[in-house]
């Protein structure tokens, strides 16, 4: 749920990075954090276990500039990818304005990708959202690994509706900002459409 503040002239939106465990959701946020000017970002918060697995969520507030005198602020969240944290994932989807599904390109993670994507649809539906009506992008991560599945195969399975899709190597930043910009643009366009 976006928050438009006419008093401070700010547009605030929430974007959630979703995907199976270890697909690189936190890595996306860390790269964005490391490469963004200090004045455009807030503190990145990671609620993680001792082994650096996301326990509840990562959070990164980001300013993307001004439109007609209104500051655009995006709150980026990740969900915990591990299957048993489903209750937490549902909570984080509340009030979402845009979603990025981060798929893991490795052949052996295909089943985990499918399960996570199904889980995203189900959990969104529980909150009254339809994934096909939300601003939504797919990022196919870990494209540099030798065991990554062919692009066409991943696209067929993980992006049947042909939403904007990006190949990525999040550890090196490849595709990270392209994905962010695409989803942020979709969110703003949707807000404009709904106004």
């Amino acid at each position: 749920m976006s928050f438009i503040n006419y008093s401070s002239r700010e547009i605030n939106c929430k974007i959630v990075y979703y995907g199976p465990g270890l697909c690189g959701k936190t890595t996306n946020l860390q790269y964005i954090y490391n490469k963004t000017n200090p004045e455009a970002k807030g503190k990145m918060i990671s609620l993680a276990t001792e082994t650096e697995r996301t326990l509840f969520f990562d959070f990164l507030p980001l300013s993307l500039g001004e439109i007609r005198g209104f500051k655009t602020r995006f709150h980026l969240y990740t969900v915990p990818g591990q299957v048993f944290y489903d209750a937490s994932r549902k909570l984080i989807l509340k009030g979402v304005d845009g979603v990025v599904f981060v798929g893991d390109s490795q052949v052996e993670r295909m089943e985990a990708n499918i399960e996570s994507l199904d889980n995203l649809r189900t959990n969104l539906a529980e909150q009254g959202y339809d994934l096909d009506k939300l601003p939504y992008c797919v990022q196919l991560n870990k494209r540099d690994l030798p065991n990554s599945a062919p692009l066409e195969e991943l696209t067929d399975v993980l992006n049947p509706t042909k939403v904007p899709q990006f190949e990525a190597v999040a550890t090196k930043g490849v595709g990270v900002f392209d994905t962010l910009k695409a989803v942020a643009k979709l969110v703003l366009t949707e807000l404009k459409r709904g106004s």
């Binding site: 438009i4 006419y6 547009i11 993307l64 500039g65 001004e66 439109i67 007609r68 209104f70 655009t72 910009k181 942020a184 643009k185 703003l188 366009t189 807000l191 404009k192 709904g194 106004s195």
Partner: peptide, 16 residues
Amino acid sequence: PSVFAEITDDDIDNLF
């Protein structure tokens, strides 16, 4: 009045 009534697609494009 909505801020989005004034914002054009070009404004959004320019941001990125």
